[in-house]
Amino acid sequence: MKIIIISYQKILFQGNIISIIAPGYCGYFQILKNHAPLISILKNGFLKLELESEKKKIKIKGGFLQVKKNMVIIIL
C-alpha cells in the first residue's frame, strides 16, 4: 500500500507501508491493504506507520486522510 503525507510546507513522508494507525475524530483507527474507500478528519495525535523493516511515529495536529485503491493520502 502506498502513502503520501503532505504538510503545507513539504512532503513529510512518501513510500510503501503495511499499515497505518491514525487519530480519527472519534478515536484511533487502522488502515490495511485493500481497505474500502474512506475519507476522515484527523485530530491531534500520532500517525503510526508500519513499514517492512521498521515502525515510524509522526506527531500531527489534525488534518485529513483519504484511502482509495491502496493509496493513502494525508493532508496536514
Rank of each mutant, 00 (worst) to 15 (best):
I20N: 14
I20E: 01
I5P: 12
F46V: 03
G62W: 00
K2M: 09
A22K: 06
L51G: 01
N16W: 04
K68W: 11
G24C: 05
K2N: 01
A36W: 09
E54C: 11
I17P: 06
G62D: 06
G27N: 01
L42K: 00
L49K: 10
I17A: 15
Y8A: 08
M1R: 06
K33N: 04
I18C: 09
K33I: 09
Q66K: 11
L32A: 02
Q66H: 11
F46R: 10
L42F: 08
G15L: 08
Y28I: 13
E52G: 12
I20K: 01
I21L: 04
K48D: 12
K59L: 02
L38D: 12
I6D: 05
K10V: 14
L42A: 02
E54T: 11
Q9S: 11
F46Q: 04
L32Q: 15
M1V: 02
C26I: 12
S40H: 05
E54Y: 11
N34L: 13
Q14Y: 14
F46I: 06
N44H: 05
I17Y: 03
S40P: 10
K10R: 03
G24F: 02
I11F: 15
I60W: 15
S7P: 04
N16S: 10
S7N: 13
Y25F: 07
I21G: 00
I39A: 09
L12S: 06
M71C: 12
L65R: 14
M1S: 07
C26K: 12
H35I: 00
K61I: 08
I74L: 11
N34G: 13
H35L: 09
G15K: 15
K2L: 13
I60Q: 08
G24T: 08
Q30V: 00
K68H: 00
I5F: 07
V67D: 03
F46E: 07
V72K: 03
A22D: 14
K33G: 02
I39H: 02
I20T: 04
N34W: 07
E52N: 01
Q14K: 08
I17F: 10
I41L: 15
Y25R: 14
P23K: 03
I6N: 04
K33H: 10
L42Y: 00
Y8F: 02
E54S: 03
I4Y: 04
L76H: 01
A22L: 05
K69E: 08
F29H: 07
I21Y: 01
I18R: 12
N44I: 06
N16I: 13
L32V: 13
H35Q: 09
S53Y: 01
K57G: 00
L42Q: 00
V72L: 15
K48I: 15
N34H: 04
K2D: 09
N70T: 13
F13E: 03
G45Y: 10
S40G: 07
N70L: 11
G63K: 15
M71Y: 02
K69N: 07
K56V: 06
I4H: 06
G62P: 06
K33R: 07
H35R: 14
K48S: 10
L76K: 02
S7Y: 11
Q30N: 02
L38P: 15
L42H: 00
I20A: 09
I41S: 07
M1T: 05
Y25V: 07
K48R: 05
N44F: 01
K43H: 04
I74M: 10
N70C: 01
F13A: 12
Q66S: 14
K2S: 12
I58F: 03
